[in-house]
Design a protein around this nucleic acid. Structure first.
Lengths: 257, 257
DNA sequence: GCGAAATCGGGTATGGTGTACGCGGAATCA
DNA sequence: TGATTCCGCGTACACCATACCCGATTTCGC
């Protein structure tokens, strides 16, 4: 067990937003900086991609950049703020060119958005470790969110309903990624192999099953639901369920005057 | 921005499982312990409930219990392992007495499970900060999971499908809780009020909208989708969508021989 | 051109975290 | 009774973020 809880939108919000939106004038006096904010952010992303948020420290970023740790505070106000910048930077990878929604195309559009989001978590698993309850909105995150909403435009949904649909899909995608992506990185991060993790606890489970405890779980387990295979947990299957639900609502709602 | 990434199922798995399942013999020699594992776990839960995982440290738990920090390591192998114990302990609060699923009752059953899970996150927001990608299964978590699976029993679903349905709902519940529960605790944790958070970034957003950027998002925002109200983000609405999708699948699947 | 002002680089220090190691004392076993 | 086991916890170490401040660099204004 390692430890680092990370929350978007903390620290010096004003300074972070100024950096995100490029609204601060460059200094007109003083020594020339040896780095740029973009360099710091890029380096931090690479470190987090490689070693997770656990592996991200100001010292390590400084080391990678061959500067003193405290120099970094010339570029970003703090570690919190650095993570906010990282979050917006990686969201540049999300789809932005979605088509406006229509009864025939919204499902494909929302599927594209969902897959794009899922792929982002695959590339940058650390993003899942940052609480997005109160995000800071930068140019990239707003563009991606605009694109997602666009897929459910033109269906006669209220603004609130549109936001809810996009959010339901995103919640599902994130929830799934937490299982699949984090499962895939767990062995490396923890130093405990999947076989060891499963093998250590299996005897406890099978002993409980043998006593007749947890009968449905026993049946599902014995039915092979958790057998290791490539589609151990099906992103596509569950996504279809969520989209089915949205489709049902869209269809039903249209039927009402 | 504060920092603590927390992963279930790390550290000394064997020792943790022995504690979870009560499979270790109490010592027959040596001084009598002044505490119990349950006391340590209970105190840690109370601290985490009050101050989040950020606020949980071995030093603080020891202080609450009026013992030296290092004494705690007599009861739990480490902080990782303590969190695993905490996770199973709070899951005792989840519903376990669900009825076996049937075409008429599965939806109500799964709704009960979803609401129970959501309520757990409300009471113990820190649980959301622990990655469950590779959990350790203790008696309470297995009982709760068994109960969830029981609601989708008897519908002719395969073991894999049953697991997928339960997981889709859980993913949705967790995703939603991350937004609503963590939003509600964000101001206190960060020291930044909701008004400050929103008010600091709103000028940047409205400036972008004024330039014609993010048109769909602008429309949704101006349509009042993010206005503060009690049902800002609707847990029930989204859950119905997910359940609708499952219902559609269950109905469709039954139609196939 | 010079002095003042602004800003960069980063050393030092502080406060916080988890936990390895090992000593003294308490309790039980043979 | 002596040997063995185990509890309590002090000490020390390694790691983390960052406040404060000094010296050096660069630009502005007179």
């Amino acid at each position: 067990m390692s430890s680092d809880d990370t929350y978007a939108g903390a620290g010096n919000l004003q300074a972070t937003l100024d950096l995100l939106w490029g609204t601060q004038e460059p200094p007109s006096r003083g020594p020339k900086p040896s780095l740029s904010v973009e360099q710091v952010v890029r380096t931090a992303i690479a470190l987090a991609d490689a070693d997770g948020l656990d592996g991200l420290s100001m010292r390590r970023v400084a080391e990678e950049l061959s500067v003193g740790t405290m120099s970094l505070y010339r570029y970003v106000p703090g570690k919190s703020e650095l993570v906010d910048l990282m979050l917006d930077a990686v969201q540049a990878e999300l789809p932005t060119g979605t088509s406006p929604g229509s009864p025939d195309t919204w499902r494909a559009g929302l599927t594209e958005v969902a897959h794009g989001e899922y792929a982002l978590y695959r590339r940058h698993p650390w993003v899942l470790r940052v609480s997005q309850a109160r995000p800071l909105f930068g140019p990239n995150s707003m563009a991606a969110y605009d694109a997602a909403l666009r897929t459910v435009e033109g269906l006669g949904l209220s603004a609130h309903e549109m936001a809810s649909m996009a959010a339901a899909v995103s919640c599902y995608v994130q929830g799934t990624a937490r299982i699949t992506v984090e499962f895939d990185t767990a062995a490396r991060r923890s130093g405990i192999s999947d076989e060891q993790w499963w093998g250590t606890q299996l005897p406890f489970m099978t002993a409980a099953f043998a006593e007749g405890r947890y009968p449905t779980l026993a049946k599902v387990y014995q039915g092979g639901a958790y057998d290791p295979d490539d589609d151990f947990f099906s992103f596509g299957f569950g996504l279809e369920r969520v989209l089915d639900g949205i489709e049902s609502y869209v269809r039903t709602r249209k039927a009402q005057p």
